[in-house]
């Protein structure tokens, strides 16, 4: 149980940092970058510490991860069109 408590404490402290960050006057882009970085760190901690993906061997990781590469491609495809102009066009 000890490693799980460690992961739990780690995730809670990252959450505390996130909440504290929201109450500091951080520029939006900077804040979003840090929040996303912390979120991915937390997701990584859950997948490795609680879901034990490393124990499943590399082949499972290869099965899981490529899908997110394609999501990245979609992101590149649509976010270029986002912006105040897109909102105006929808009006």
């Amino acid at each position: 149980m000890k490693p799980y408590f460690g992961a739990w404490g780690f995730l809670l402290s990252l959450t505390a940092i996130e909440v504290a960050l929201a109450y500091r006057h951080t520029p939006p882009v900077m804040m979003l970058t840090v929040l996303l970085a912390l979120s991915f760190l937390k997701a990584g901690a859950i997948v490795t510490r609680f879901m034990h993906i490393a124990g499943e061997g590399a082949r499972l990781a290869w099965l899981v991860l490529p899908a997110f590469f394609f999501i990245g491609l979609i992101l590149l495809g649509i976010l270029g069109d986002a912006g105040p102009a897109a909102y105006g066009a929808a009006q």
């Binding site: 995730l11 959450t15 996130e18 909440v19 960050l21 929201a22 109450y23 939006p28 804040m31 979003l32 929040l35 996303l36 912390l38 979120s39 937390k42 997701a43 859950i46 997948v47 609680f50 879901m51």
Partner: peptide, 20 residues
Amino acid sequence: WHFVDLVWMFLFPLLYLTAV
């Protein structure tokens, strides 16, 4: 169950903390 927990790790900062 851990996956449901993982998803919330993105929703909480992106929905709440960026709209304080």
